[in-house]
Structure formats: C-alpha cells, structure tokens
Design a protein around this nucleic acid. Sequence first.
DNA 1: CTGAAAGCGCTTACAG
DNA 2: CTGAAAGCGCTTACAG
Lengths: 333, 333
Amino acid sequence: MGEDSKIPKLEDVAEIAGVSSATVSRFFNNPGMVAAATAERIRAAVAQSHYVPNLMAGGLASSRSRLVAVMVPDIAQSIFNATVEAMVDELSVGGDIVMLGLTGIDNARMPHLISAALARRADAIILTGLLTDQATRDLIRRRETTVIETWGLPEDPIDIAVGFSHRAVGQDIARFVHGRGYRRPHLLSASGTRAMERRQGFLDDWASAGGATPTEQVFTSQTRFGHGRAAFRSLRELDERPDVVVCSSDWLAQGLLVEAMAAGVRVPDELAVVGFGNLTMAAEMRPTITTVDIDGARIGREAVNVLRRRAAGEKIEQRHIDVGFRLMVRESA
Amino acid sequence: MGEDSKIPKLEDVAEIAGVSSATVSRFFNNPGMVAAATAERIRAAVAQSHYVPNLMAGGLASSRSRLVAVMVPDIAQSIFNATVEAMVDELSVGGDIVMLGLTGIDNARMPHLISAALARRADAIILTGLLTDQATRDLIRRRETTVIETWGLPEDPIDIAVGFSHRAVGQDIARFVHGRGYRRPHLLSASGTRAMERRQGFLDDWASAGGATPTEQVFTSQTRFGHGRAAFRSLRELDERPDVVVCSSDWLAQGLLVEAMAAGVRVPDELAVVGFGNLTMAAEMRPTITTVDIDGARIGREAVNVLRRRAAGEKIEQRHIDVGFRLMVRESA
DNA sequence: CTGAAAGCGCTTACAG
DNA sequence: CTGAAAGCGCTTACAG
C-alpha cells in the first residue's frame, strides 16, 4: 500500500532499470533501437513494477491514438456482424482497439458518434452504413481522417470504399430467376438506398429480358421475419399469384417460407423464394434458402488491410475495392 | 489551407472568443461556471473554428478516459448481443465510448484485451464471460479498476456482478419438465462453466423429485445447429428413447426440431424439446420453442447504471444484482 | 545505442 | 466568474 499502490509510470520503470525514460519508451515503440542487455533490464523492471503504458499520454505525444472507430446501425440481428468481428479481430492483433458506434438503423446517431471518434483522434473511421449528413462529411474531410466505407461502392466515396455492387446483385438475381423459367416475380424490398439499388438492378434486367413488370411491396421499416409472414398472406389475395418472391433479406424469405409450409404450399414448385444475405439459418432450415452470399468477414479484413497499408505510408490510388458476391442456389428457388 | 487547415485547439477558440483557455475548458466541462455572455462568445468561436476537443489530452489531464471496455466472446451469433447493444446505447448518450473486445469463445484473448483496456485507462471494464486468468485478476485488483461481471452471479465477484443464477435456471426447468409429466429426459449441454451449472441444477432437482438419472451428452465445442441435428439422430439409436430433450441453447433445440420434423416425429407428443436463450427464432419457427428468456438488454442497462452511480460518488454495497429469468412455455414442450 | 529537454493539448487547484 | 501556471505521462528530434 501507500507508495506501492501508486500506478507506475515510465519514469518508475526507467529508475528501476537504471536508464532514462526515453530509452524505456524506445523499448516499447522501437525495440530495435535498444541494446539487448538494456532491453533485458527494462523487461525485468516492467515485470517487477507491473507497468502498463498510458496510451492516452502516448497518443497525445505521438498523435496516434491506435483507436479505430467502427460504425454500424445495430448488432442485435445484423448482417454486418461478421464484418465487425473480422475487423475487431484483425485490429486487436495489431494492438489497435476499436470503438464500437451504434448509429441506429436510420443512422440518426452517426453525427454524434463521428464527433466522439474525432474527439478521441481515432486513426480511422470505418462505416458500414451511409453517411448522408453533409456537415459531418465536411468535418471529416477538413480533418483529413481516413474513412473506409464498406458494404457498398458509392460513386464518389469520402475516401475508400470496400464492398460490392448492389445493382449487380439485383441484375444477377433477375437473370437467375428468368433462367429458371419463373415469369411472375413479386418483389419484397426494404426502403433503404442499397435495397433500392438491388431492386432497380432487378427491374432493369428483368425488363430487358422481356419480362412483364413485377408486382411489388416496399417496407419502410427494417424487414423482419414478421413482414415476410404478413407478405405471404397478402400474396394469396392477389388476382394473379406470383411464382417467385424476391426478398431483400433472408429474414423476409424465412418468414414467407414458414407461412408457406404451414399453408401447405409446395416450395419451389408452387412458389419459389429468393433471399439476400445468406444468414446461417438460410442453409439450415427446411427448405434451404436460395440467396446471395456476401463475404462479410472478407470485407472486414480488406478494410483493415487498407488501413495498414496507408499507415505504412503507402499511397493508395484505388478508391473502390470490389469483393463481389455469390448466388447460393438451394432448395427454395 | 495553410494556417486554416491546422486542427484548432482550445487556445485557438479562446483567442477568437477573447477569453483564457481555462474558461473554454470550463465551458465544456462545467458550463454552470461560465457567464451566459461569455458562453455565447465561446459557442460562436467553437462553431467558427470547427473545434473538436482532444479527449486524449483531456483524459490525460483529468485522468478520466470516458472509455468503457466491453469484453464478449464473439458477436457473430452471440446471446450477448442485446446486452452489448444496450450498453453501447446507454454509454454513448452519456458521452462515453465503448471499446469492443472480442475474447474468443474460449476467452483466450481476454488477458491481452484487458491490458489494452488498462493501457487506455478505461474508466471501467465490463465482462460477459469468465475471467479465469489469475495474473490478469491481480492486475485489475491492483489498479482498482471498476469491473462489472455480467450474465452470471459468481460467489466472489471481482467487483460487482449483474446476472442471474444458472443453477436456478436448471432447477426451474427440472420442475417444469417433471410437472408436465415427462419422465425420461435427455440432457444436451455445452461444456462451459455456466451450462454446467444449469445442468447440475437440473440434475439435483430431478433427483430430489425422484426421477431416474437422465441420459446425457456434453459438447466441448460451441453448441450449434448442426450439433442439435446430429443429436437427434443419435437419440434414435438409444434403447430407451427420451421423451424430452433439455438443450443448453436454442440453437441445439432448433437443430433437433428440424430433424424431428423431417423424420415425422410429432413434437411435443412423441418428443418434447426445451431450449435456452429465447433467440428471436424461438418464437417464430414452427413449432415454437419452449425456452428460458434472459433480459439481456436489462443486464446491459443495469451494468451501466452501476457505473453511473459509482461515477457519481455513490458507494455501492451490493455485490450481486440478480435480474432473474423467465421460462417461456410454447409449443415444443 | 542513449540522455536531456521541449512539447503534445488539455484540466484544475489557487488566487483574485 | 475568470486567468496564470503547473502538471498529466508520454514521444521525439537533437546531440553525443
């Protein structure tokens, strides 16, 4: 107690090891610069004093926080979780920590959280959603903060984008559905920008393949299981029933399927279903769901990789990194 | 550019507003102390200069990081997600940020992540898993860091625990199962400490109710959907088939149910199933799953609440905060 | 390979 | 209600 209970600082370690605090600092940040014998004494001193560096002080002095902010709408039931997990894993092995910002599904808290990240002088900010607030975009630009946008490939990224073309997803689904011989698609979409891009891709490709205009339904709230369920019921009341339902999430698809099974509708013969996201569930329930797989972990790794390269001083020309996607053909369509 | 592109600091704001930097600091941290007219000038200066405080400097000076570390095994498919989400939401409205640490399902990275949190001088560390590493426990004790353990109520918490009794869960399930008239339970458990506590609670209560020793199976890896599936098949080969399967996760239960349906086994008449966790899925698939609901969000809010009270100087005597649990009786048992 | 010293951008008693 | 000044615990040219 007393003296002992004080939190040790760099100087305490230096004193024990009989060197200057500058040398101890180098031992941590630039070990190649210190002599082997000195390093050994410092190592012992660190162990003896239970020293843990103060990275607030270190960050202030070096203007490197070793903190990366990751912004995501939510994590309760999110398609982004694999991405966040990969990022956190990759970053923490490199000694960086991640600030997790939950912006809300409408991204309403984004500006506030970006400010909090800038106040901590985050080395980088990674976004999974869209940053639409112009004042915040300006603030970020002004401070020349590294920003990685993920899960999409906007025309004009703030900095660098790692993702895939949502429009291309829609087009591929249209081609697949048409190729399978379905002729009366019904679209179940969320109202977000990206779901709308997929929808437009589908519609354009479908039209150019000569298909009749699909019926559709757009949900302004987050698409959940219950929406899929309700949608199945309303589908049954249509004059001309669809032969395939293209859903903007696996949740919608699963809800639809559970109701279809309960109603004794044969899938895919009487009604086919296509999802999006390839949740674990999609491959494990009966029937298995035909859907689109996004390698979320890869998006996370690529994003961190870009950060590392830039931290190493590399000038990165590429503004778009396309990780693509895969149509997973299973039982439901 | 040039002068303009420099990041503004407190002094710059002070100069524009015609006050000292101490006053600007007070404007942010103790607004009640500054005169209304002065505050107005400072507000204008902040807006004009696009000032964002440097909280590394602030934290160093005040020895308050406004950073809370949250440690969780994973977030990909985690039962803790609602807890983490609630914590992040609560903390960020108060201006605190959260460092998300992913320890791995075996908690192997816990010591490394705790060090990272201590190095950032986190105001508190919240755990969802168990911290078994003694050296790390000692380190935390030595630094007198606030630690909240959640999702369990260990006999001797490091500091404060917010959770529920896993043993009581097992006991309640045993009572329920027995009351429903089931007589040949089979237990499907994960090998973790907490799942084992639930198992023991079940066994003890079952025995005292006069039940015959249940058959059982323990999984050393994380219990997933596939394990439930495989379990169903091996159950069919037992001499005396169980009439109810008590699973340590809803994933196991769901896997079992899908196989049971496929095999034409009637649930719950021929085979009943009980899960744990009350995942969204448990109420939405057919048949719906009888399971145990834990209010994860409440655990998160209570944990943050404890932090706030302590930050406000309150001395907290209570070392255990029990949030309880609820048996959700549905179709599967 | 090592040390002395200035500086990073704040906060906070202390004095008025 | 406000200011001058010391201090928070590091890093990093600079000099040797």
